[in-house]
Simulated scan of single mutants.
Amino acid sequence: MADPLGGEAERLAAALTAGGQSGDVVSLQVADVTESGRVNLQLGDGSLLMEVACPDSYRNRAAGDWVAVRLSSVPVVLWRLGDDPAITDAEDLQKAATQAAQDVQVVRAATYGTGAPSGTGWQAATAVYVRKVDDKIEIYFQVPDASDPSPSTPGVPTPKPVTVSPTASGSWRAGRPDDYASTPVQGDWTGRGNRRGAWFYGSAIQSACAGKTVSGMKVQFTRKAGAGVNAKRPLHLYLHNYGSPPSGQLNLGDGPEDLLRLSAGAKGTATLPKNWVTALASGSAKGLAIYASGSSDYMAVTGGQITITFS
């Protein structure tokens, strides 16, 4: 197996060759963001500078970013290069504020007493009705004379996204569960046979989608360091139809779809195709799998959390 955490001197030498001398600040592109929140950087010779630390001010890190990097015995990202993020930050804040407002039941005051309320504008209710919409309570008061017109009922907000985590995962080789792989693996590194890995969700995906209009699904994966080559390689994704791990062979469904490429230690998110979304939402497919042949795309993968959005 490759050693993505070792070889710092060789990678630094490559960085110096690509950009400058020790202590210089150079511009490099982010290949991937790792599970630790650090970044893998693309060097001029095609190799990677692995697990480079970043300042707290570098937020919303993503593959493809250009960053300023100080070269030293311990390289470090100084800042991201690009447009002023103020507009994007403002949009994100607005979305968060809107969601928070939708999550809160707002009544200006709730008081009571043995007599009629003081002040103007009160109307006596002859009946009270309640219902639940999108897990929120709506109250309707029937009045004999609506002298002060009622405010309009707000529209029902779009259901919030739901994230479904796997209930189990594993790898299969030679038609049976592979006791030597603790996480899903694709490919073959040792010549003992190709592995296929999978994530299982029971009926949680179908339950989360019941009665709602699904607009999309995204799945998050992290490629483990120390398995296969450091460079970016594709995940070969498939559907499967198991609610829980089978005792025999794991049969693959639709696929492969190469929706995501990750370098060693990197995390990323893949958007599932529409026909896969339909299959998972309806229950005609139950989960996700990976499979590759040979050592070229060999990797071990964790994660598998599926985020479902609605319209």
Results as ranks from 00 to 15, higher is better:
P157T: 05
S150G: 07
P161F: 07
G155C: 06
T163G: 00
R195G: 03
P184Y: 06
D178C: 06
T167V: 13
Y180H: 12
P159G: 01
D188T: 04
P159D: 04
R173W: 02
I205K: 05
T190Q: 13
V164H: 03
S152E: 12
D188F: 07
R195M: 08
W172H: 09
Q206A: 14
V156C: 05
R176T: 15
D188C: 08
G187Q: 13
S152D: 10
P184R: 08
S169G: 05
G202N: 08
D178S: 12
P154Y: 00
T190I: 13
P177N: 09
Q206G: 02
G155A: 11
S169Q: 14
G193W: 08
A174E: 14
W189K: 14
A181N: 12
Y180C: 10
T163D: 00
P157Y: 07
G191K: 11
D179C: 10
N194R: 13
N194G: 14
A204K: 12
G187S: 11
P177C: 10
Q186V: 00
P166F: 03
S165R: 11
T167I: 13
I205Q: 00
W189L: 15
I205D: 00
K160D: 14
W199A: 10
A174M: 07
V156S: 05
V162P: 02
D188K: 10
R176V: 15
G202T: 02
R195W: 06
A204Y: 08
G202L: 01
G187L: 13
W172G: 05
Q186L: 02
R176D: 12
D179L: 15
S207V: 10
P151Y: 04
P161E: 01
A168E: 05
D188H: 10
G202V: 08
Y201V: 09
G175R: 12
S152Q: 12
S169V: 05
S152C: 02
V164A: 06
T158Q: 00
Q186G: 07
G197A: 01
V164G: 01
P159W: 06
P161N: 02
S165H: 09
A198T: 05
P159N: 01
D178M: 08
V164F: 04
S203P: 04
V164P: 03
S203V: 10
V162G: 03
G191S: 15
T153E: 12
S150P: 03
N194W: 12
W189H: 14
G175M: 11
G175K: 13
I205V: 09
S182N: 13
G155T: 08
P184V: 07
Y201W: 05
S203F: 02
T190L: 13
V185G: 11
G197M: 03
R195E: 09
P161H: 00
S207M: 09
G187I: 01
A168M: 08
Q206F: 01
R192H: 13
T183H: 15
T163F: 05
P151H: 01
P154Q: 01
Q206P: 00
A198Q: 02
R192E: 14
D178E: 09
Y201G: 02
P166L: 07
G202W: 05
P157G: 04
V185E: 11
S169T: 00
N194F: 11
T183L: 14
A204W: 06
P177G: 09
T158H: 05
G175W: 10
